[in-house]
Simulated scan of single mutants.
Amino acid sequence: MAADPDRVAETSESATEPTTDTERSSVSRRRLLTTTAVGSATALAGCTELLSSGGGDPLRVSVWSGNYADRFEESVVPKYEEEFDAEIQIERGWNDILTNIQTAPDGDPPYDVTITEGNFYYLGRQDDLFHEIRTENVPNADELIDYYSEFRSTEYGMPVDGAPCTIVHRENVDFEFESWSDLSAPAVQESNGIGVDTGFWWFPVYAAAVGMDEAELGEEMHDADLHDDVLETVRNWPITSWASSGEDIWQAFRNDVIDVAQWYYEQTEYDIDDYDGLTHTMPEETTGYLNHWCVVKGTDKRDRAEEFINFLMDSEVQTAWSEEMPTLFCNENTEYAGDLADDLPSNSEEASNIAFPDWEFLADHSGDLSDAFSEIQRNS
């Protein structure tokens, strides 16, 4: 996933990163408001525009840091390099990804391809940081699950992977979790407390909205008149840990600071057995993030970048990828490893049960929502 929105990449007018929470919040508000703001050879057959990638400089690919990058390098990079006889140079990052692109000299971007979640994808498009995707170079787009190609523009980036949010909890909590509304249940109120993501504030907020019944599947977040109700729900949760990483969540469980947490399926499903007494339950209706992969404007490897994105979208690649990373994938022909298909969407109907944040709407309200979330954190 991308960076803390309160540490969001600055506009191209500034080359330095804000250093305090207040400064970061201010930059985020200004930034949003001023902008309105193993691929198979068979899959590539007939696509004459895609040339062999062999030789030349490595393709520079920006990915999220942490275990996402570890698993990406283990499962995806070797397959691409073997198939195309080409080198991939992985660049790990979080909040610095857009800043690095914005502050680079014209015609010399730091990456050829970058990952973005919804917030970064929106901001990058506002700042004209990405090339349009030439669909003739990404034939695997024809195999996208319809929902992923329709709910958010694919003009500048292709949906590839993502993750829903899940409820992490102790096995001995005397309660059967089913919905995000359960974070308001008496059993949770009486527990040691809840851990939530403080970096990506919109996910715990959307989770609260999904658990409400005033609108359909988190649509409370797309009605400014209901924002106070959503924030009041979060305010009433017994939050005792504000996490900026998965390690923060696991440490809070180890220290008996929390008994329940909002976190991400992709960072939980394959790791939770490493922690005694913990399990997780993903509600049928939830929130989550979706990664759009983009070609960075100014690259001299535009064809290869689109070839790489097409590779990531291949069903065989995604099937193999799922053995290393429990993330949702967007190709309708992907076959998930193990039992992942029991939890992760394989069609539009299942995908539509995830309330992905709508940044076209949120941009005008992000400052107020971020401020309110920060106030809840300070007062907890």
Rank of each mutant, 00 (worst) to 15 (best):
168 V>G: 12
226 L>E: 10
226 L>P: 03
210 V>I: 08
133 I>S: 01
218 G>Y: 07
183 L>Q: 06
178 E>Q: 13
121 Y>A: 00
127 D>L: 10
198 T>Y: 15
149 S>F: 06
209 A>H: 06
164 P>G: 13
223 D>H: 05
124 G>N: 03
192 N>Y: 04
221 M>S: 07
182 D>W: 04
201 W>S: 10
196 V>S: 04
203 F>H: 10
163 A>E: 08
140 N>E: 09
228 D>W: 01
133 I>P: 01
154 T>K: 05
204 P>Y: 11
165 C>K: 14
188 V>W: 06
141 A>F: 03
216 E>G: 03
211 G>D: 03
175 F>S: 08
159 P>G: 09
192 N>P: 02
216 E>N: 12
136 E>V: 08
210 V>Q: 04
126 Q>N: 02
127 D>E: 11
167 I>A: 13
160 V>C: 10
193 G>A: 08
217 L>N: 14
127 D>M: 14
171 E>S: 13
178 E>F: 03
132 E>M: 02
120 F>I: 01
165 C>M: 15
152 R>Y: 07
131 H>N: 15
143 E>N: 14
200 F>C: 10
118 G>E: 13
151 F>T: 13
121 Y>E: 00
119 N>T: 08
199 G>T: 06
217 L>A: 08
207 A>C: 13
138 V>A: 14
142 D>F: 06
174 D>A: 15
168 V>E: 11
194 I>T: 14
174 D>Q: 12
121 Y>F: 04
184 S>H: 09
198 T>H: 13
127 D>C: 00
150 E>S: 12
180 W>N: 05
199 G>K: 06
208 A>N: 01
172 N>S: 15
227 H>T: 02
172 N>M: 09
195 G>P: 04
168 V>M: 15
205 V>G: 03
122 Y>D: 04
177 F>S: 08
141 A>N: 11
138 V>S: 08
188 V>I: 14
161 D>K: 09
164 P>V: 13
119 N>Y: 03
197 D>M: 11
133 I>Y: 01
141 A>G: 14
222 H>L: 14
140 N>A: 03
198 T>I: 05
169 H>W: 07
161 D>T: 13
124 G>F: 05
128 D>R: 02
228 D>G: 09
139 P>C: 03
120 F>M: 13
155 E>M: 08
188 V>L: 07
155 E>L: 07
137 N>M: 12
193 G>R: 11
151 F>H: 15
163 A>V: 09
194 I>K: 10
141 A>P: 00
184 S>T: 12
197 D>L: 12
132 E>D: 09
124 G>Q: 01
203 F>L: 15
227 H>I: 12
160 V>L: 14
118 G>S: 05
227 H>Y: 07
152 R>G: 00
218 G>M: 03
172 N>Y: 11
229 D>Q: 10
138 V>L: 11
164 P>K: 14
181 S>T: 02
210 V>F: 10
216 E>W: 12
121 Y>V: 00
129 L>M: 14
208 A>L: 04
212 M>F: 03
196 V>N: 06
146 D>H: 09
211 G>E: 06
133 I>V: 12
133 I>C: 00
149 S>E: 14
227 H>F: 09
193 G>L: 02
127 D>G: 04
162 G>C: 07
118 G>F: 00
222 H>I: 06
173 V>T: 15
192 N>D: 12
140 N>I: 01
199 G>V: 01
157 G>T: 02
228 D>I: 05
221 M>Y: 08
164 P>E: 10
155 E>G: 08
224 A>E: 14
